[in-house]
Amino acid sequence: MSVSRFASAPETSPTPADLVRQRYGSDQPAATAEWNAALEAILSHRSVRTYLPKPVSESVLQLIVAAAQSAPTSSSLQAWSVVAVEDPERRAKLAELASPNPQIISAPLFLIWIADLSRLRKITTEQGKTGQGLDYLESFLLAAIDASLAAQNALVALESLGLGTCYIGGIRNHPAEVGEILGLPPEAFAVFGMTVGYPDPAIETDVKPRLPQSLVLHREKYQTAQPKADLATYDDTMRSFQTDQGMAVRGWTGVVASRIADAPALKGRHVLLDVLRRMGFKVK
C-alpha cells in the first residue's frame, strides 16, 4: 500500500526505503544509507489538485521566490520571471485557456513561469548594443531552462513547507492570449504554470511511479538496447496505480502513444514556433 503524505498521519512514518519503493512502485537499486531531509522532500513529491480555501501568505511567496532564485542560471543571465496570480477573475480566464483546467480556479495561488528575454533586450539596447545573440534558438532555450530550474527549486521549497503543487503545461495551449492577460512584453513567454495551495487532507494523492532506473540511467554511452521486460513491468505498475486512483487504466505506453499520436494531440501547441515569432522572438 502506498503512503499518502496528505492523508491522516500514519502510525509510523515511511522509511527512506519506503519512499524509494513508492517512487518506483517496486524495489530499485537505490541505496538509502546517505539520506537527509532534502531527499525526503524530493522523493515524497506528488501532484496536488485539490486545495483548502486558505491563502498562501506573502512571506511564503517571497521565501519561495528566494529559493527559485537560488537555482543555477546560465551565464548568470537570469532569463526568467514569475507572475503570481491570486485574483479569481484572472485565474478563471487562465483556467479556460488551459484546456480548461478547474484546479487553477480552486488553487489560491497560480504561479506562471516566464522565459524572459525582454529584460535582457532592454539592457542591451540601453548599453548601445543590438543584442543579436537573443535572436537565436539557443537564447530561447536558455530562458526556458532557467525558468524550469527556478520553478523546480520553488516546488521543492513549497512542498517542504507543507504546501501542494501541480505543474500546468496547458498554459501553452494559447500562449498569445495568456500573454495578453498577464501583460507580457515582447520576448516574454509563459512556459508553464504551477498551482499552489494547502492540500485538502480529505483527498488522498499517492506518489505516481516513475520508470525503472534501468530505462533512464545510461553509463558512459546511451544504451539503445534497453530491457523490454522492464518497460512491460512498468506498464503493469502504472495499471495498478491507475486502478487504485480511479483513473482510466491504460498503463504508460498507451498514454504516451496517445499524447504524441499526431498534431491535434498537442492541443494547439504544434504552431508554437509561429506564435513565438508573433510574440517578438526571432528564434533563428
Rank of each mutant, 00 (worst) to 15 (best):
S214E: 13
Q213T: 12
D200F: 11
P227N: 09
D230A: 10
Q223L: 14
A190P: 04
Q242P: 08
T224G: 12
D206R: 12
Y198A: 10
Y234H: 15
Q245H: 08
T195R: 08
P186W: 03
F192G: 08
V249P: 00
L184K: 03
Y234M: 11
F189A: 07
Y198F: 11
A248E: 08
D206Y: 10
R239I: 01
P199N: 03
T205C: 13
V178F: 03
L184T: 10
R210A: 03
V196W: 01
E204Y: 06
G193N: 06
Q242F: 07
G179S: 15
I203E: 04
V255W: 07
A190R: 00
K228Y: 05
R250F: 03
E187F: 01
A257R: 15
V255P: 04
K208S: 11
L182T: 09
E220Y: 02
D244S: 07
K208H: 01
I181E: 01
F241D: 08
D244N: 08
A248D: 04
A188L: 00
D206G: 03
P212K: 02
T224E: 15
Q245R: 13
I203C: 09
T224F: 12
K208W: 04
Y222T: 15
V207T: 10
R219I: 14
V256K: 14
Q213G: 09
G254I: 05
W252V: 03
P212G: 02
P227I: 15
L211C: 11
D236G: 08
V216C: 06
D230K: 12
T205N: 13
G246F: 05
G197L: 10
V178D: 02
G254T: 06
A202L: 14
Y198H: 11
T224M: 14
R250Q: 15
L217T: 03
Y222W: 14
P186M: 00
R210K: 09
T224V: 12
M238I: 09
K208I: 01
T243Q: 13
Y222F: 15
L211M: 14
T237W: 06
I203T: 10
P185E: 04
T205Q: 15
M238G: 08
E180V: 13
P212E: 05
L217Y: 04
V216S: 06
D235R: 09
K221C: 12
P199M: 03
R250A: 14
Q213K: 05
R219N: 10
A257V: 03
A190N: 02
D200K: 14
T195C: 00
A248S: 03
V256L: 14
P201E: 05
I181R: 08
Q213D: 12
P212Q: 02
L184M: 07
F192M: 06
A229F: 04
A188V: 03
P212A: 07
T233Q: 11
G183V: 00
Q242M: 05
L211R: 09
D200Y: 13
R210E: 01
R219E: 12
P212H: 01
V216K: 06
L215E: 13
M247A: 06
G197M: 12
Q213L: 14
K228V: 02
T237D: 05
A188P: 08
L211G: 05
V207D: 01
Q242I: 04
A257D: 13
A229R: 07
Y234G: 13
